[in-house]
Design a protein around this nucleic acid. Structure first.
Length: 681
DNA sequence: TAGAAGCAGATTTTT
DNA sequence: TCTGCTTCTA
């Protein structure tokens, strides 16, 4: 027990020691959130709660892994049962493995990732943009709206189309026994919702539920938690409303703001002591976030001293900015600072280019976090597609991806004909090629037909081979299709081939470590795995602010503090969420923070003139920057000045998400403009 | 069928 | 400006 309590402050101790009931732990940045949650798990077990009745849910595998390690290091007794500590999605996967048959589906399903989803949608050939369709389908699913309901509800033409695509997509998934990320939460919810007994049983099983990063839960995750707590009220959530930055993805900040109302007798504990940053950095963060209204309210209190002033750099353009920052970083490194303690953050990935150039010129090695993910790489996706086809030959989608890779002379023309015929017969392509092989006669060239037959033969052979040994599958696959050889002749061959080797190694490891699991299991496992951020020990890191969440750096640079870039302005932008992003960015810094802005920036082929970000003044870093007075109000008839349109008169004032939108008449031209873009004169 | 040229579109993205 | 995808041509 002493080991568990060691190094916990009073509020942390309180959060750890209360076993029963609902609890909301508001954990500010750097306040020892992980320590608290893992100590709590250890404490529950030390108090005789069976590990099997504790469920801890996180958002990332990384968080889950780290917590598992830390919790286990605190648990002193021998465990014959590990407490389940995993991501929401993994939990959904485990649940579906046992219960998906309640929906009349087989548990040999395969998980598809968001790229696969887009490709499937694309194959439906619609004139509605894929990204919109993709998002809307996700929304439908998360709001538990069925395709039929969506079709019935749709008013606009495009939405009718989207609703139809949604239906097609869902049919495609069930037909191919595929499951997307949304399904991993939606389907378990549906099952629990329709089967009260099972719901009660599961809730009884997990009598103690902990949720990490609660501010990022969406409506469905909330509903799922309600189901899991039908038999009790033992739910402990940890989060920080000020760090809610995934609203655009469906995370609902209301979940944390209204937690106390949803779960009876909630005990609220605030962790405000910060063990990460200097007081100066914390003050900037506190000042900035104080401009938000939609928050529970808390302050970060420093524990490690004043520290240095925040540095502010303003440059004429992004190249000078990159140069200056590179120089500063060189200086830090020459003073003996470890490069891995340095990071550069930006709001949008497009800003990385100039910085990368600057770093390259200065010969500073860097690691870009959150670039192309390992499993998203072309060569890896190809091999995964091979494995998928071997696991489930009716996966048309994967089959199409590999049927001409390596090139075997099966082009678009052939493939289109085959696809069309399969569609006509309402069977999978594989089925067409095996059972109705003769129907291809005359349809495609003789050569193509022969090639297809050989290909099918090879796939069938590999399918046979896994019954004997999964371990050798990879070697057989490589022997048969020479994928490495194919990639060794293409650009970036060195990297690609080494990626392939790494993947092969991963596969073999998995088979050795999980001899009972099937190829399906392997595929599902990797679908849920994002890249483990292996931050290179040798180099500094550059990444988006989103990607920096949960990380910390001694020396931190945040670039692009300009109106329009950060905060990003435009359609559907939520200024408070932008501000929370600013808060997340600032609170990543431990020792020294540098904020940087530029007067102009090349973006989408144009050089844009920019104003300094309001966040600079709100955080007290640059008083002279654009200051948006909380009390500034416009009246009809006020004269205002716009950088481009010049002087105009306000005709109308409306409010969009806490921002004022003005209708302004510029010499006869009427325009809608956000108040932050004009100056009152 | 495979490369070359032409063209739209370009926030953030834990799973 | 740069990327990734479609269309064009040998």
């Amino acid at each position: 027990m002493e080991k568990i309590f060691a190094n916990l402050n009073e509020s942390q101790l309180q959060a750890v020691k209360q076993i029963d009931g609902a609890m909301l732990i508001l954990a500010g940045a750097g306040s020892g959130k992980t320590k608290t949650i893992t100590s709590r798990v250890a404490y529950l077990i030390a108090n005789g709660i069976p590990p099997s009745s504790i469920l801890t849910l996180t958002f990332t595998n990384k968080a889950a892994t780290e917590m598992r390690h830390r919790a286990l290091s605190l648990i002193e007794q021998e465990l014959n049962y590990m407490p389940l500590l995993c991501t929401f999605h993994k939990f959904g996967l485990l649940f579906l493995k046992f219960h998906i048959q309640k929906l009349n589906r087989s548990n040999s399903f395969v998980i598809i990732d968001s790229n696969d989803k887009k490709r499937i949608l694309k194959s439906f050939e619609s004139d509605v943009p894929i990204s919109l369709t993709n998002n809307e389908i996700s929304k439908y699913k998360n709001n538990l709206i069925s395709p039929q309901e969506a079709i019935a509800k749709a008013q606009l033409k495009d939405y009718k189309k989207i609703a139809n695509l949604y239906q097609k997509y869902e049919e495609y998934l069930t037909r191919n026994n595929l499951v997307d990320f949304d399904d991993l939460l939606v389907l378990p919810y549906k099952i629990l919702d329709s089967d009260k007994n099972l719901c009660h049983q599961i809730s009884e099983k997990y009598r103690y539920i902990l949720v990490d990063e609660y501010q990022d839960t969406n409506d469905l995750q909330f509903k799922l938690l309600q189901k899991l707590t039908t038999a009790h009220n033992n739910i402990c959530v940890v989060g920080d409303d000020d760090q809610s930055i995934y609203g655009w993805r469906g995370a609902n900040i209301k979940n944390i703001l209204e937690f106390e109302h949803e779960f009876p007798n909630t005990k609220v504990i605030k962790l405000e002591l910060n063990y990460r940053s200097t007081n100066k950095i914390l003050k900037a963060a506190n000042d900035l976030i104080s401009y938000n209204r939609n928050r529970l309210g808390k302050n970060l209190i420093g524990t490690i001293g004043e520290g240095k002033d925040i540095t502010y750099i303003h440059s004429d353009n992004e190249n000078i900015e990159a140069h200056t920052i590179s120089k500063n970083i060189q200086e830090l490194i020459s003073k003996g600072v470890d490069p891995k303690d340095i990071a550069i953050l930006y709001r949008i990935n497009a800003l990385s280019r100039s910085i990368e150039e600057g770093l390259n010129k200065a010969s500073i090695p860097y690691k870009m976090v959150g670039g192309v993910k390992f499993y998203d790489r072309l060569e890896i996706k190809d091999i995964i597609s091979y494995l998928r086809v071997i696991a489930n030959a009716h996966d048309d989608f994967s089959l199409k991806r590999i049927i001409n890779k390596p090139k075997r002379g099966l082009g678009k023309a052939t493939l289109d004909k085959v696809t069309q015929l399969a569609n006509e017969k309402s069977i999978s392509i594989f089925e067409l090629l095996t059972k109705h092989n003769e129907s291809l006669d005359g349809l495609i060239t003789k050569k193509a037909h022969q090639t297809i037959n050989l290909f099918i033969e090879q796939i069938l052979q590999l399918q046979e081979s896994i019954n004997e040994s999964t371990y050798e599958l990879i070697d057989n696959l490589e022997d048969m299709f020479k994928i490495k050889e194919y990639y060794s002749l293409l650009p970036d061959s060195l990297e690609r081939v080494s990626n392939i080797d790494e993947f092969y190694g991963l596969f073999r490891d998995f088979v050795i470590q999980n001899p009972d699991l099937s190829l399906d299991d392997f595929l599902n496992e990797i679908a849920l795995q994002s890249e483990q951020d292996q931050i290179d020990d040798q180099s500094i890191s550059i990444m988006s602010i989103h990607a920096s969440k949960g990380l910390e750096f001694e020396y931190l640079f945040v670039i692009g503090l300009e109106e329009g870039f950060f905060p990003l302005l435009g359609d559907g932008v939520n200024l408070e969420e932008e501000r929370r992003l600013g808060y997340v960015a600032i609170t990543r810094a431990k020792k020294e923070l540098t904020l940087s802005s530029s007067s102009t920036r090349y973006y989408k082929g144009k050089r844009a003139e920019l104003l300094k970000s309001r966040f600079l003044s709100e955080s007290g870093v640059n008083k002279g920057s654009l200051k948006i007075d909380k009390s500034t109000s416009y009246k009809k008839g006020d004269l205002v000045k716009h950088k481009i349109f010049g002087i105009g008169r306000v005709l109308e004032i409306s409010k969009v998400k806490r921002e004022f939108k003005l209708k302004i008449n510029f010499g006869g031209n009427t325009k809608d403009i956000l108040a932050s873009f004009v100056e009152k004169i």
